[in-house]
Design a protein around this nucleic acid. Sequence first.
DNA 1: TACAAAAATTAGTCATACCTAATAATGTTT
DNA 2: AAACATTATTAGGTATGACTAATTTTTGTA
Lengths: 224, 224
Amino acid sequence: MSTTSHIQTLSEENYLKVIYHLGKETKVKISPTAIAEALNNNPASVVDMLKKLVDKKLIQYEKSKGVRLTEKGKKIALLIIRKHRLWEVFLLEKLEYSWDEVHDIAEQLEHIHNPLLADKLDKFLGFPQYDPHGDPIPSASGEMADIYKTILSEVAEGKACQVVGVKDTSTSFLQYLKKLDIGIGTKVLLIEKIPFDNSIVISIKSGPNTTVSKIFADNLLVHE
Amino acid sequence: MSTTSHIQTLSEENYLKVIYHLGKETKVKISPTAIAEALNNNPASVVDMLKKLVDKKLIQYEKSKGVRLTEKGKKIALLIIRKHRLWEVFLLEKLEYSWDEVHDIAEQLEHIHNPLLADKLDKFLGFPQYDPHGDPIPSASGEMADIYKTILSEVAEGKACQVVGVKDTSTSFLQYLKKLDIGIGTKVLLIEKIPFDNSIVISIKSGPNTTVSKIFADNLLVHE
DNA sequence: TACAAAAATTAGTCATACCTAATAATGTTT
DNA sequence: AAACATTATTAGGTATGACTAATTTTTGTA
Ligand SMILES: [Mn+2]
Ligand SMILES: [Mn+2]
Ligand SMILES: [Mn+2]
Ligand SMILES: [Mn+2]
């Protein structure tokens, strides 16, 4: 990732990151309302900031036409995401934080500025490919692996899959996973789908059958 | 260090830190002007902030009477300093930054908030006692070792001493030190003081004699 | 003690990043 | 195509933490 030596404010960085993520998920046009929702602020504030980001040539935007990152904006967004995910690995593996604690601290750490930091951290951690939630870590040159995840509820009966992440990152969900002994990389076999309430019967690590709810299966990301 | 769960802004934290440091160095009353100088801003801004810090019961302050940290303020200041110095050790030892690069990054990292962070980092680093500039790291309970440093220019002729830190942390000074092969722990013998311009003749690591300026000797902290 | 210099404080602005309320533009129904 | 609903934008404000330019207040010296 090249030294984009012109420094962004913390707020600008958060906008760029959110715009990047929204662009990945929903292929449709990115609206002020969607951005406001993601940032937990309001659409009027977003429009203010969008003007500023246009001035700085970090996004393209015309009234009511939706937002797109420029190459420059995308580069910065990917660097923030790279730092966020690398710091999460650091917090989990080196400082022994748990799966559910790392995100909030990484939200702060991702904004530490230093041209060498991401690469030094990457090296120190042994060039990890994925963060603790199964999300790919963008490379130094800004490439991000596109792992194709599905939710557990979309896997067919009889198929095996591997856990790569979670959609819901709430403490209660992560703690339930811990209780079930499910983590990143865990092998899950989908035994049966119950039509009545869409519950799903699975076998974890070839162990005994367990039944999980539809809500549960909607929030567990897997790779077939 | 107890969980002072009420969170300060980045600005407030920098003020508390500066006030703490000024109180250590100069035993006299701490003035708005001195604070402004340390923060590179102006006395009027300082007075504004002092009012805010009084409201929050982090300092004691009456017009023109000088500033003092309250116990609460001191605790926070020491936690910031603890985090700053621990992060410096991390950056030097784990990420392989050099002596002169760590300070600026630690200025940012010291403001990362999480109740467990300082202690986890401390443990990960093996409970270091000193930072890369020879400054003591405050303990988890907010105790800070009081190493008594002198500047090289106050050492008597014929006396040996050990480098424990620097007063000036500028890149040019630190690079000059590197060139002279002086680092933390280096043994220095004071051979002679030249009356004419107060230059000082020293021997580094029992090597050949070298002459350094008064300005140099004023900025090198040693322990006899 | 008086008076000048220095230091501290107040008054009045400014930029950033938010907000609410009002208005305008766009989209969806009938 | 008109009416209504939704979404976006503008207008006008607020809090924070800076600043500059007065105006005290304090201090040091004559
Ligand atoms: Mn995260
Ligand atoms: Mn430092
Ligand atoms: Mn700082
Ligand atoms: Mn230091």
